[in-house]
Design a protein around this nucleic acid. Structure first.
Length: 440
DNA sequence: CGATATGATTGTAA
DNA sequence: TTACAATCATATCG
């Protein structure tokens, strides 16, 4: 009872940097002794034990020796053992197996995901290098943008690792220190291996909480960097002309189904040299830019078809001419960007295409990229329609507006619908009047 | 500098 | 997950 304050005030923390736990046994272990002299005596000894780390080495050594040779020592040791046996139960009960902290797990996962705590720089840089290599020469500018990000990230990573190492080292040092201390003390008071173990785990817990702070602040830093980078990325850069041409070509030659497959997207991305390993909300696939482009294109085309007439005609005519050249000459001396190459005009059902198109189609009987055969046929039809109308006396003028009629879209709002062959030259209700209002 | 074009992001529905 | 619609924010044009 009254010993408590005395023991409490002894600087148990000095040697242990405010370490909890150590004094616990002692606190409980002193109750109940009676007899003034003995009590005083024991108190003194305890006092010495508790303050032993405060003293200079020599002094401590001397006192230790004195302590060990004290006539009461064995008795006290026994008493302590006895007390301990009683209290060890409660200690053991209080010993909980710490579950993995979810917060810590979260941080760890995030750090891993961001490439901070993962395998050494190999992974990230390899991926970046691959992306850069895949993008050919044109990736220089955005790789410059990325290098900034990567540099900062690796800086963070370095700091993180250094700090972590420092903490770990400090932890180990401290642990051994404490263990030595305990071992030393075990000569004067009973200390079970379990206790040491417990102490070690306490120390580790303490340090891991410090580590968590480190991880947390690292995460914060990464988040800030990331958001800044995202903002920077949001500063869009227009594609170059060639890229736009390629995309437009694909778009208009697949107008009936402008949904490129993943492979097609990849192909287009490669062709356009827009292989930025960009971070999208959903994926880092390089086809994301292409996807964005097609998404924007589709929606904007649909929204205001009239505005895209000219463009549509242009690209349609171009691909048509290319197709015609390819088929009639059998030689592909076309513009390299024309996606007409893979030949497999095999089985497709052109249920709603007219005979006219059937025949013309067989003329240049090749389809594009294997996937979506039916759609490709449709696109061929689209293209060929333009050929026909073009060869049928089209000279860029007002008639151009009449030429291209996006029936499929207006019919049911979809792209899939076959352009009704009967309206090849769709004279009335031409797209010139379609949606002339700018209802946005 | 305002208007328009355009790439990217976000929220939502199927 | 994808497509779409709306929206943001910058790029570019005149």
């Amino acid at each position: 009872m009254d010993e408590q304050p005395r023991l409490m005030h002894s600087h148990t923390g000095v040697g242990m940097a405010g370490h909890p736990g150590l004094p616990q046994h002692m606190q409980e272990g002193t109750g109940g002794t009676d007899g003034d002299g003995r009590k005083q005596d024991i108190g003194d000894i305890l006092q010495q034990i508790m303050t032993i780390t405060d003293q200079s080495l020599d002094e401590a050594q001397a006192r230790k020796h004195a302590l060990n040779c004290h006539r009461m020592k064995p008795a006290l040791f026994n008493v302590l053992c006895e007390i301990k046996e009683k209290t060890v139960l409660s200690i053991r009960g209080a010993q909980e197996e710490e579950p993995p902290d979810p917060q810590l797990m979260r941080l760890d996962n995030m750090l891993l995901a961001e490439g901070v705590s993962g395998p050494e720089k190999g992974g990230g840089s390899a991926a970046a290098a691959a992306a850069a290599a895949a993008s050919g020469g044109a990736g220089a500018d955005n790789s410059a943008e990325h290098s900034d990000y990567r540099a900062k990230l690796s800086q963070i990573r370095q700091i993180y690792h250094t700090e972590l190492e420092k903490y770990e080292q400090a932890c180990n040092e401290f642990t051994t220190h404490v263990m030595n201390l305990l071992r030393e003390q075990s000569r004067t008071r009973p200390i079970s291996p379990k206790e040491i173990e417990r102490m070690v785990s306490i120390i580790h817990r303490k340090f891991s909480s410090i580590q968590m702070q480190l991880k947390q602040s690292t995460c914060e830093a990464v988040m800030i960097l990331r958001s800044r980078f995202l903002d920077a990325r949001r500063k869009r850069r227009n594609f170059n002309k060639q890229a736009t041409e390629i995309l437009n070509e694909y778009f208009y030659s697949h107008l009936s189904n402008p949904y490129p497959s993943e492979e097609a997207k990849e192909e287009l991305a490669k062709k356009c040299a827009i292989t930025v390993a960009q971070v999208h909300r959903r994926s880092d696939l390089q086809g994301t830019m292409v996807s964005n482009w097609f998404g924007n294109k589709r929606i904007r085309y649909k929204k205001n078809i009239g505005k895209f007439q000219e463009e549509a005609n242009m690209y349609a005519a171009r691909t048509a001419v290319n197709a015609a050249n390819a088929s009639s000459h059998g030689s592909q001396a076309n513009s390299p960007s024309t996606p007409n190459s893979a030949g497999s005009g095999g089985s497709f059902n052109m249920s709603n295409s007219g005979d006219l198109f059937m025949s013309v189609q067989s003329l240049n009987g090749d389809s594009y990229q294997g996937a979506q055969v039916g759609a490709n046929v449709q696109s061929q039809v689209d293209t060929l329609r333009h050929v026909i109308s073009q060869t049928g006396g089209y000279s860029e003028g007002l008639t151009a507006n009449q030429m291209y009629s996006p029936q499929g879209i207006n019919a049911n709002g979809g792209w899939q619908d076959a352009p009704t062959p009967s309206s090849v030259t769709s004279p009335t209700e031409g797209p010139g009047s379609v949606h002339s209002d700018t209802s946005n």
